[in-house]
Nucleic acid binder design. Structure first.
Lengths: 230, 230
DNA sequence: ATTTCTCATATACGGCGTATCGCAACGGTA
DNA sequence: TACCGTTGCGATACGCCGTATATGAGAAAT
């Protein structure tokens, strides 16, 4: 029997696992935002039928959860910093940078509890930085307060960035950027304080304002730590 | 010509305006979450064809913007409080309460700049509370920091609330609530600090923890205000 | 009365998430 | 080697979505 007689071996389907699926989904999201992630497109990128993915996830939402957890791995600092303050600052900045790399993360941040392995590891590392410093409750309050801050701040930053991008770039968050509408509103005189802020305010770059606010919040936490709660 | 000969007058289409559309959309979202808001369903609720809405909005996203701005009206405090600190605190709490009334707001908060009339009014009122206290830049930093905090905090609160709801309620955010998974992870011993936090932590109700974190942040702002920046 | 304009509606397109089910390849047994 | 149960892939299908476009009816203007 010659080669010509024998049929080719059947093409086995591309092997699949969650890792590959998540990687494909992240690639799509990086390129076109969260809305570019569809079960069908992820599958196509893996040369698979859409339904095949449902062996690995049971819902599209779960795919998002996996994506977030994957990025948490980027956030987890490689070495444990000594100081709690450093730990929180680094966590905040790493989260911000991860979000700048993966803008879609802004849409998901804080949207669901992060209970994946990497998410838990990040939380663990953060809590560990407070070991022996105060009671658990104060630690929780501290971590939650700081993370609430940076989640909110990152969301706003990305929101502004997108808005600027959508209207043709500009340095000033508001005014020229958002074009005639805001300008017109301010011109009505109904928003004097706002107008003053827009016209007299200095343009600070996003990173600086992020870091400044973060320092304020960290100061606040520090103040509560030295004087343990009543 | 008798009645029988004359045809009925043509049924005029229900009059429509943005207000009605937004109200219908909000009603739907209140009942079934943001995902229950579809152009078709909003239209149906108004006895209109789906396409009719596109005379008033040009995209579904715009509808969301209008919804958010509508809720901003609920947030705008009726009377101007004297103190900047009171102003920020009230803003935070009113935003939180609005979000508890309209949970879908959590998904939108911080997702886009709030440039609608009510959004601008809220910002104006907030900025006005700082009138004459410090330079514009510090004021901006203060307002942004505080709002970053409460947006993040509100998002987390709603996220936890939904998670609890989805798994059958529980008092403890994590453990029993999220069922076997977290428990199992904690049992591995890989997350000692986290485990301690979960087991030894006190259950604080959401409002208290929100208010506590908020106070910390407000303290931080106060500290920066008394000592104006370099 | 006739024309012009405005705007509600119908239809249609391409995409979505996912339930269901037939079927082909495989591993184990006789 | 023949059979057979299991596994899991893929095709198909359903009902929904946002919205572009075309059609036609009524109001307004002449």
């Amino acid at each position: 029997m010659t080669v010509w007689d024998r049929p080719e071996p059947p093409t086995r389907p591309v092997p699949l696992d969650r890792e590959r699926i998540v990687a494909a989904a992240i690639a799509l999201a990086d390129e076109g935002g969260l809305e570019a992630v569809s079960v069908r497109k992820v599958a196509a990128r893996l040369d698979a039928g859409p339904m095949r993915l449902y062996r690995y996830i049971s819902t599209k939402e779960e795919l998002f959860d996996l994506m977030v957890d994957e990025v948490q791995a980027e956030i987890l600092p490689e070495e444990q910093p000594g100081d709690w303050r450093e730990a929180l600052r680094i966590l905040a900045h790493r989260t911000r940078q991860a979000t700048l790399r993966h803008e879609w993360l802004a849409d998901l941040l804080g949207g669901r509890p992060a209970l994946g392995p990497n998410g838990l590891a990040v939380t663990e590392a953060t809590l560990a930085a407070f070991d022996g410093l105060t009671d658990v409750d104060t630690v929780m309050r501290a971590v939650e307060t700081v993370s609430a801050y940076f989640i909110g701040a990152i969301r706003r930053e990305i929101a502004n960035l997108r808005a600027e991008r959508a209207t043709g770039l500009s340095k000033h968050d508001w005014q020229r950027a958002h074009g005639p509408h805001v300008t017109r509103m301010l011109a009505t005189g109904r928003f004097p304080a706002l107008a003053k802020a827009v016209y007299d305010g200095t343009d600070v770059d996003a990173e600086t304002s992020f870091a400044t606010g973060l320092d304020w919040v960290l100061d606040a936490v520090a103040a509560k730590l030295t004087r343990p709660p009543a």
